[in-house]
Write a protein that binds this DNA or RNA. Sequence first.
DNA 1: CATGAATGAGGCTTCATTCAT
DNA 2: GATGAATGAAGCCTCATTCAT
Lengths: 207, 207, 207, 207
Amino acid sequence: MARPSDPSKKKKIVTAAITTFAQKGYAGTRIAEVAEAAGIGKGTIYEYYRSKEDLFFATFEHLMSDTNTLMDKVSQSATGSASKRLVAMADAIITSWLANLDIFGLVLEFWSATAAAPGRKRFRAAFRSAYSELRRVVAELIRHGIEVEEFNAQIEPEKIASALIGSWDALLFQGWLDSGFDPLGASQSHMKVVLAGLRHPTTADEE
Amino acid sequence: MARPSDPSKKKKIVTAAITTFAQKGYAGTRIAEVAEAAGIGKGTIYEYYRSKEDLFFATFEHLMSDTNTLMDKVSQSATGSASKRLVAMADAIITSWLANLDIFGLVLEFWSATAAAPGRKRFRAAFRSAYSELRRVVAELIRHGIEVEEFNAQIEPEKIASALIGSWDALLFQGWLDSGFDPLGASQSHMKVVLAGLRHPTTADEE
Amino acid sequence: MARPSDPSKKKKIVTAAITTFAQKGYAGTRIAEVAEAAGIGKGTIYEYYRSKEDLFFATFEHLMSDTNTLMDKVSQSATGSASKRLVAMADAIITSWLANLDIFGLVLEFWSATAAAPGRKRFRAAFRSAYSELRRVVAELIRHGIEVEEFNAQIEPEKIASALIGSWDALLFQGWLDSGFDPLGASQSHMKVVLAGLRHPTTADEE
Amino acid sequence: MARPSDPSKKKKIVTAAITTFAQKGYAGTRIAEVAEAAGIGKGTIYEYYRSKEDLFFATFEHLMSDTNTLMDKVSQSATGSASKRLVAMADAIITSWLANLDIFGLVLEFWSATAAAPGRKRFRAAFRSAYSELRRVVAELIRHGIEVEEFNAQIEPEKIASALIGSWDALLFQGWLDSGFDPLGASQSHMKVVLAGLRHPTTADEE
DNA sequence: CATGAATGAGGCTTCATTCAT
DNA sequence: GATGAATGAAGCCTCATTCAT
């Protein structure tokens, strides 16, 4: 009864699942399709994953961890001023996703998985902590910029961080919707403005 | 043969559909549930909508038009400097959605509907044009700010617009995920920085 | 509660039903279609007929009575030798149906209605008595031919009658299937042979 | 993805389908009933047949092929004069169907399937070619009878063939309607007359 | 009388999951 | 361990019939 755990096969399944879920969505994907894409039998998937839902969550975790890995790499390799590091981070994330825009649909599926009914609470929880962590990293960077007096002290690092991260996601979504849209360019333009804003004092409260 | 078209009943159905789809997601919703929520018979829904998918799209259009109405109201009523108007717009959108955060899950469903398979192309098309319009309106406002020399001339209105809009969506999403998160505060903080950035020249290209 | 009985409206409904059932079959016909074809409201049909099944049976009776009327006319107007009368009868029936081959599909529906389940026993009964009557008329004619020594006395009128009648139906069916097939020609050819056979003694029992 | 194709199971299903469709008609039959009659699960049927309609067509083909097999056997084994062979053929077909009169209702369903709407064109096509072939075989036999001067040269083999075949069908139908009716006797009586007619010259055209 | 909007029973079909091989 | 044939719960949708207007 103990399930097998050949990691190479698990990977093969998840990879196939990513492709298939991305193309057809969760509801539109049949387990048989994933199996076929993975070049294995339908029943075999159940040796490695308890259910379709479980497999879906596994693809989620897989992508999540890819993103985390990317983030770690970026934040470790980034050098220079806080501004440069922020821009590098934005560019890295967006560039990385642009290179895989074909599976961006999967992200949308994950987002919507945070909504629907029961058994999907883990998606919401995972997203929450992922965003939380991402905000922490970015906020840290901003805070650092303040400390070294690169950024103005009035700003609230956490809040800015959440908006920045959000803009990255949202620009990718717009790029996904509209192939004529350029998320990277938009992000860079936005980052320039934000960095300018971070350096200068915000005007005394309007009105 | 000719289907009935009592608009008040259509509205009753759509309203029920919004609630139900928002709570349980598209896949998790049974037509019978919507009917019950609308206080009518299951078959009656099919007098007004050809299919579940059609009803879903109708809820989409309904919310879309609500958002458009809101946008029109905001852009018409907004007065004062470009900055103030931008902030007003951001606040209006976010506040409006915060008041209906319980149906934000529906938006996620719509987002993911832009992905999956056939018969859903219209979602993508509708989103594309909606974003396009929203960008146009916001970019217009920014362009106006440049003309009156409130904003610095180097910025690219369309790109900034897309990032701003994106941040609103994405902050709402974070608020949806995490009830401790405050989208409005984050947006306001972000807007302040952006407005500061818009007023000041961006530094000479970083290397 | 008493049902109305405006006969002109009943006729309008049955006429519409004949056309529609003939084109789409019983199962493929919706009451709404019949109503539309009749130029009346869907509910009105139920003022005149208890159910779809009932309406179907009414179309059956209508056609049956048409056929009976035809038969009566033919058998009364026929003059001359028994042979001539038989041929006239065959020709009349086939010609009449050929002129309405577009509703022959309805006859097929009636035939199959003699099979399926309960509530359709009346179709079988009606057919049984209709065939019985038809056989009686044709057999009578043959018997008459025997009496006047036009036909050979060995033949069994009832059996020949049933085969003749059957051949008419079946040739029409073949014509219905294949527009290149000529039921009338085939019938005439067949009748000639049969009449020749009726006139001559059948050979002593073949071994 | 690839559907199973165990022929013995396909046969089991078709057999069950024949019984059930014959008893209750196409419309009156529920897939679940067929499954139960076949002793398998409802879903299993869909592993072997795409739809109810498909299964129905399969039963049609099955019976068609049975009939063809019978015809081949009869035409090959038949010896003796053309007359004897014709009678043998008639008797074989009728006897064979009489032995299975319980599923004759199915034939009626098939006949009516040549009418109704779309997706059923194949029934008509199959019938057309089946009748065409049957006519060919019978006409061939008649033509042979002419050649050996057993039959008179004036007759038209194709036309007589179509009428003979038709009479077999139609007599079976009458037997099906009325258990007191004897299709075999009627056919034999009819065949005798026809054979007598085939041997003797038809009278000069009856004005 | 006529209408057609409303209804819900009923059936086909899908597909995740199981389990014998 | 791997497989895929078998399964049946579940759900969309149709359409005959009703009945308030």
